[in-house]
Structures are given as C-alpha cells and as structure tokens.
C-alpha cells in the first residue's frame, strides 16, 4: 500500500477540481424557487412572478416561430395572451 501513497495527492487534486467544477455548474442552475416562496422585505403586496428559464425558452421559441413565419400575428398575440393570463397552467401544458 505504501508504494501507492504517491497517488493520493494527485487523486485529491483531481477530486478537488471535479468538485469545484460541479459546484460552479450547480450554482449556475440554482433558481429562487429552489428555496421556496420568495418574499421581498421592500415590496408590499403580491410579488411579480419570477420569469423562469422554461418561460424564457417558451417565449424564445414563440418568437422564432413567428420570425420563421410558422405562426402569424393573430396566433402570436393569442399565444402571448394565453401565456400572460394563464402563466401557471402554461408551464404545465408545455
């Protein structure tokens, strides 16, 4: 076993680097909703809903489809109205 002791330190640093990379990537993915309901100490009343990455993705796709001519003005407006008025259901539907 003593003969392989020299491996321990490189292994330690490899683990260290992997852990650091994982931590950085994990932090990037953290969303406010991971911590439950968000309440501001500065704003009274109902908080505006936080835009999630899924929301952004949906809106981007909508824009891309519109640009590509897959949907027309009226369809876009309809979709946006739908998105804004039924945000919560929207995410589930998707």
């Amino acid at each position: 076993m003593k003969n392989y002791k020299f491996i321990l330190k490189p292994l330690f640093f490899i683990f260290n680097l992997l852990f650091a990379t994982w931590l950085v990537l994990r932090i990037e993915k953290i969303q406010p909703s991971d911590f439950g309901e968000y309440k501001s100490i500065f704003y009274k009343g109902v908080m505006p809903k936080m835009v999630t990455k899924a929301d952004k993705k949906y809106l981007k796709e909508l824009c891309a489809e519109y640009k590509a001519g897959k949907i027309d003005d009226s369809k876009l407006e309809e979709q946006l109205d739908d998105f804004l008025t039924h945000e919560e259901d929207k995410v589930k539907k998707r």
Partner: peptide, 9 residues
C-alpha cells in the same frame, strides 16, 4: 481551488 473556481465563475 474552490475560491479560484467560484471567483472565475
């Protein structure tokens, strides 16, 4: 190493 990684991020 964590400090450097988190600092760069």
């Amino acid at each position: 190493i964590l400090t450097v990684a988190l600092g760069i991020s």
